[in-house]
Design a protein around this nucleic acid. Structure first.
Lengths: 198, 198
DNA sequence: GGTCAACCTTGACCCAGATCAAGTGGGTAG
DNA sequence: CTACCCACTTGATCTGGGTCAAGGTTGACC
């Protein structure tokens, strides 16, 4: 779905991953959101998509026509409240990402992205012990570059470097094992606890 | 107000400008939001501030204790609805800024910031004609650098360059006149219309 | 099996912006 | 009037990541 397309539904991701992307006239693109399962798509009270939305894996979504959804939202304050919560969470995520884009080095950017993906998969996937996690990358090198504000070459080089330094272990090009999550978080330059308030 | 401080009120800016900033342990900082008059501060259902909040000019805010505000929000769906609107707008702004941070050059970043400030002041301030606007910078070079993910030296150099190229006219260090808004928008690399959907 | 197209890696080189270092101007405290 | 400070400018140099270019892998299709 392309920015500007009219979109007469809203929905939420059931499974798979999609990306929200902005593009400049000259072709430079920046991913502005990663849609993971449970994330909401579309804005009540707007006719068109504001961003390009692209599925990066097979994707299942649960959609509602916009009209009835808006009526439902007016009737049941609980829905509106929940939607506000989710929007505030997305805003926090966007702001965290602004720090990544504005101030982190290429290596830290990669580590930050891997942390996010790893933390997400800890809850859903194979956790193999104390600090160890493994998962499959749902993104191509190019998609990662778009998310991180880098080129795909730099992404490739930094992943190779993290592998060389034993921060991650690659099996094939897409499967990643993290022997020590604390180490990865450190490389990401994050406050070690990652503690969100509330 | 510092990130992590407990904050038992919410509020909105009446006049003046404040900034939301994130800081890494090693001191790198990134501004993640600019609070202009009418913007909302604080998150219902969170105890502490998630970011550093700093007034960059004299500032007047209109504040509410959090408890009564949350009750009011539950009672009057209109408030919740309005808050959702504002949060979605902030999310859009944050995402627009992600494109600026991730993909624009230093010159484009400066032009983007000036566009935002100029557009804001067109409505509130001295408009002098068709495409001409002037206003005072409410930010130091350092604050601009924090917003744009640059150093203050680069900000200074690019402002000098825009002045040399007649895109802007400086009077003193803080007062800026834009003879041709379209030209500025072009320098910012924005789609010429700047057209938001909806 | 061979071919083709994605996707990824690696190397060599370059440049925008960071870093380090003076220096300027204007406001204010003494 | 002088001294000092703060915000800013400008120059010289360095470097992380971009750019350009050449392979390598894998899988699908013929």
């Amino acid at each position: 779905m392309w920015s500007g397309d009219k979109m007469d539904f809203v929905g939420s991701v059931v499974s798979g991953i999609a990306s929200l992307t902005q593009t400049m006239e000259d072709g430079r693109t920046q991913m502005v959101g990663l849609l993971l399962p449970s994330d909401f798509v579309g804005r009540p009270g707007r006719d068109g998509a504001a961003y390009d939305v692209v599925a990066t894996t097979d994707l299942v979504m649960c959609c509602f026509r916009k009209k009835p959804f808006e009526e439902m939202m007016n009737d049941t304050p609980h829905i509106a409240h929940r939607l506000l919560e989710m929007t505030l969470d997305e805003l926090d995520a966007a702001r965290e990402w602004m720090l990544v884009l504005g101030r982190k080095t290429a290596r830290e950017k990669i580590a930050s992205l891997l942390s996010i993906l790893a933390r997400r998969d800890v809850t859903l996937n194979l956790e193999t012990g104390h600090g160890e996690v493994e998962f499959d990358l749902p993104l191509t090198r190019e998609a990662m570059a778009d998310y991180l504000g880098l080129t795909l070459e730099t992404v490739s080089r930094q992943i190779s470097a993290l592998k060389r330094d034993q921060v991650i272990i690659l099996e094939g090009k897409r499967h990643i094992a993290v022997p020590d999550m604390d180490r990865l978080m450190e490389e990401a330059g994050d406050d070690s606890d990652g503690g969100l308030l509330n």
